[in-house]
């Protein structure tokens, strides 16, 4: 009889996750329920003060602002990454294009932030070029505001969205697009009604890969942001290093972890159901499928637009 060696195979990873993920997380949880030390650290006294401090309107304000910035950046990223992933998937030299997406990772991210500072600064390349073209000598204030933070965050996390989107789009059967066109969809409709539902899994992964790290962003708002760009990541860092309130820093971190974990679970439970409905639709064998029904209805709709070319 063959013995089930599954647990043995899993053991190294289980150990890894316990030691380097679960244990630190538990330590953070524990710290959030201890009394803060006067000079940093914690006193071994049980206290829920940190969680009481959390119910603070200023913290709520930062949380909302952080959510807003993360959402804005994530939306822009997905809108940019979709066509990008699509063009890589359809390209003949995929390897080269993927390589180009990965190249920025070779440079440390702080160096890349400073690169943007020297590009967008008042004496930076862009302003110098504009001055050369005769725009106002004062220069434009590109940096140190919320827009700059979103812009650089988009730049930083774009590859994390392109890669998963590429890999799902690559697996997508492009003949479906032709079939959609044959059945009367405009070019745009063939993308939005056939391709997007089919690559939903990739979109969800891309959203998770970008939204979560952006939600905890620290260096970009610190270096690119202005006086009002304080995000949750900065609050945590300040509580640890400047105001010496480790329990509060732990409590905020834990809440952020919980919030993102809940979001991931919601996505994960929703995912299989939707993928099934989309995957099962085969335009040839299931003429009564949802997509096809729509396509049958659509010729007139499609004709209203003079040409689908521009939409692509």
């Amino acid at each position: 009889m063959k013995r089930n060696l599954g647990p043995a195979y899993v053991a190294p990873q289980a150990l890894w996750i316990t030691v380097f993920f679960a244990a630190p997380l538990l330590i953070i949880v524990a710290y959030s329920f201890l009394q803060k030390g006067l000079y940093g650290g914690v006193e071994p006294v049980f206290s829920i003060q940190a969680w009481v401090d959390m119910a603070n309107p200023t913290l709520l304000k930062v949380t909302l602002k952080t959510l807003w910035v993360s959402l804005a950046a994530t939306i822009v990223i997905i809108l940019l990454a979709l066509p990008c992933g699509y063009s890589i998937a359809r390209s003949k030299n995929q390897a080269l294009r993927l390589f180009l997406v990965i190249v920025p990772f070779w440079t440390n991210f702080l160096v890349r932030i400073y690169a943007w500072i020297s590009i967008l600064g008042n004496e930076g390349f862009v302003n110098q070029a504009l001055r050369f073209l005769g725009f106002r000598a004062e220069g434009f204030q590109f940096l140190y505001n919320q827009g700059a933070v979103v812009f650089v965050l988009v730049y930083m996390y774009l590859p994390y969205a392109i890669l998963p989107l590429f890999s799902t789009i690559d697996k997508f059967d492009f003949t479906l697009l032709e079939a959609a066109r044959d059945l009367g969809a405009t070019r745009m409709q063939s993308y939005t009604k056939v391709m997007i539902p089919n690559i939903k899994g990739g979109v969800i992964t891309a959203v998770l890969f970008t939204f979560i790290p952006i939600f905890g962003a620290y260096a970009v708002p610190l270096l690119i942001g202005g006086k009002d760009s304080y995000m949750l990541g900065n609050v945590i860092a300040d509580q640890l290093t400047k105001t010496r309130n480790w329990p509060l820093a732990s409590a905020i971190s834990m809440s952020m972890t919980l919030l993102t974990a809940i979001a991931v679970f919601l996505f994960a439970f929703k995912k299989p159901k939707e993928q099934q409905t989309v995957k099962d639709i085969d335009p040839l064998s299931q003429p009564n499928g949802k997509t096809i029904e729509f396509l049958h209805r659509s010729p007139e709709q499609g004709k209203k637009k003079p040409s689908g070319k521009g939409a692509a």
């Binding site: 500072i117 600064g121 008042n122 004496e123 940096l143 140190y144 270096l223 006086k227 760009s229």
Partner: peptide, 17 residues
């Protein structure tokens, strides 16, 4: 103020920012 900054204030000043 443009911002509160303890890391790059000198760089910003030197760059004319």
């Amino acid at each position: 103020l443009l911002k509160f900054d303890a890391e790059a204030f000198a760089k910003n000043f030197a760059a004319g920012e």
